[in-house]
Design a protein around this nucleic acid. Structure first.
Lengths: 182, 182
DNA sequence: GGATTTATGGACTGTTCGGTCCAAGTTAGT
DNA sequence: ACTAACTTGGACCGAACAGTCCATAAATCC
């Protein structure tokens, strides 16, 4: 039988595509190929647990692929972050679940986790930028701007139905982060 | 009796706070103080028409307060845009409905309007930046970055539950827009 | 003042929601 | 081969959804 590990990515795409409330159990069953009995067997606490499992997966991936590598510091680490982020968001073809959850009723359900995700990202990027020559206080402001920029690039790409918009904004953020004086 | 003009702003806040799907008719009745009969009298096509009326109001406001004034061009127009945007989003205390709609199932319902809103904003800001000394092609990239940045600042403020994050990011965007060479 | 029209609110409707239940199928153990 | 445990899917449940209906109230017209 399929386990949580196989099912959670499918849940993730369903929540990204439709949002928490838009992703009905009927849609989730269709996307996962499971009946409700099976879903509830894997996630006994129901839909909220499914979304929590998805957030777990997102956090684990970002910690491993983005936040921890940033600790090596410097421009190479920052550039690697941009590469990872570009790939993860499929160059603008994929919604950031955390950002989407922040803009809906889901925010209240997962408030601490949404906050931690962004705090962690900004902290990690601050450290990398500081190691790369940015003054600490400016680094933090820069990090916030970059993380906000990534989120905004996703919104823009989605609203314009234009992945290239994401790519252009990301490229600008990348160049800016690479330059301590700008 | 209260008309659409009085009711639509209340609808707008309800959709901003809860999202399209999260804003049930029960919530909408509560927020507007009307019964269903009255709501359906004002908006015979139902909930989707209420949301469309809200988008109308958003577009009219942005056209009048942001896009049209940008046509006067130059740094003063751009600065004025930042002032208007800061006030409109209550310094980070208010969600951008268009952005929120772009990240949920509502995107499909209102695709053309969401696209037009952002296209209009980027075009208008491009023109203002070009009049302010930015090279046209760079102005367009800059405009995209600014608009994306505003959206991202809203997501960040919301997720972090910290309006000051919005203010900081907006300030950086403002300074960047004011400087042709950065 | 009466007749007509419009606005009103909430009971009601059919549908969909998240979640529960359980018969049947599958797997594991002996 | 049999038994027990586990997994499965979908019928079913109660609640909530968007929307309809209609008796009543209010407004408008003459």
């Amino acid at each position: 039988m399929a386990g949580r590990a196989e099912i959670t990515p499918l849940l993730a795409e369903t929540f990204r595509e439709h949002g928490y409330e838009g992703a009905s159990l009927a849609l989730i069953c269709k996307a996962t190929g499971l009946g409700k009995g099976s879903l509830y067997n894997l996630f006994p606490k129901g839909k909220e647990e499914m979304a929590a499992a998805v957030l777990d997966e997102v956090e684990v991936w970002f910690e491993r692929e983005v936040f921890a590598p940033l600790a090596t510091g410097g421009p190479a680490a920052t550039a690697k972050m941009f590469d990872a982020v570009d790939a993860y968001f499929r160059s603008g073809g994929r919604v950031c679940l955390v950002g989407a959850f922040a803009l809906a009723d889901t925010r209240e359900r997962f408030a601490a986790r949404l906050r931690t995700y962004f705090t962690r990202w900004i902290d990690a990027l601050s450290i990398a930028l500081t190691a790369g020559g940015h003054k600490p206080r400016k680094a933090r402001g820069r990090a916030e701007e970059v993380v906000a920029g990534v989120q905004g690039a996703i919104v823009l790409a989605r609203a314009l139905d234009d992945k290239a918009a994401f790519a252009r904004v990301l490229e600008r953020l990348r160049r800016r982060a690479a330059s301590p004086q700008a």
